[in-house]
Design a protein around this nucleic acid. Structure first.
Lengths: 150, 150
DNA sequence: CCGTATCCATTCCGATACTG
DNA sequence: CAGTATCGGAATGGATACGG
């Protein structure tokens, strides 16, 4: 994610990737969704260098995905928590996770699972639906743009 | 996306990102979903250098997201089309798109829209649900893993 | 404990030129 | 048209070392 998309890209996918399209960003959001708030805990769980963790956190804060809040334990440091914008990445995260579960694991190796707290069972698969509730696949789509490009 | 996740990562999100976590990859998949098949058309629409287009296409083919098929027009070249694995990225793509639509555009600038062909209307928002159909948010989740890490 | 600052190796991306 | 080859600049990522 070097170049960033043309600021003028009219494609929402491209603009989203500007913010969360690099390797670590989504993993940070993932952990934040699980309640991770502290710098050191991100560092420990993700196993990444501090400087780039700093950099990514800063970008995510600037992008409005995370916000800094005073530490809950009274210490002098910050905690990072998801804004609503960040929480709204949940469908993206779940979609990515379900795809990975389906295709990126053999029968041998097991993976972590996201459960809902009440049932202690995996989530339902995400389904793409039309406005009136029909299931739609890639063949049922068309792109509409004021201009031309995707 | 330099390092690739530890091959042993048990997190499906991380493994998914190994394949589609870099800037261009998802944009290629996006265009493929709209029916783009030819090298030059990817190049033209994405405005990227040929060498890296070549490289990304190769990776996506190796990953089983795209497959090479003989050109439909009888020319000597290849066409790239989505495999089922690739088509199953639709929820991810839609999630990313809807998030971008919501947060990455002011009222001034307009964006492309994905419609379903029948209704010619935007898709329904993706909703994350539990196995028994309740809406769930980030607060309702728990991570279960054989080991410990996400 | 929470970062920031440096340094270095690697990789990525874009431009260009070249081939069949 | 569909790539491959090469080159250089920029940015990333990791390892420290350092400071509040």
């Amino acid at each position: 994610m070097k170049h960033k998309s043309n600021k003028s890209s009219i494609c929402p996918v491209a603009r989203s990737l500007d913010v969360i399209g690099e390797w670590w960003s989504l993993l940070i959001v993932r952990d934040a969704m699980l309640g991770v708030k502290r710098f050191s805990e991100f560092e420990r769980r993700l196993g990444m260098a501090k400087n780039i963790l700093t950099s990514r956190l800063k970008l995510l804060v600037e992008a409005g995905v995370l916000q800094l809040v005073p530490a809950s334990d009274g210490s002098a440091y910050n905690e990072y928590e998801l804004t609503q914008k960040g929480k709204d990445l949940l469908p993206t995260m779940v979609a990515l996770r379900q795809w990975g579960e389906k295709y990126m694991f053999g029968n041998g190796d097991d993976h972590s699972e996201l459960h809902d707290k009440k049932q202690h069972k995996p989530l339902a698969p995400l389904i793409v639906r039309s406005a009136d509730g029909r299931k739609v696949g890639v063949e049922d789509l068309e792109l509409v743009s004021s201009n031309a490009t995707s």
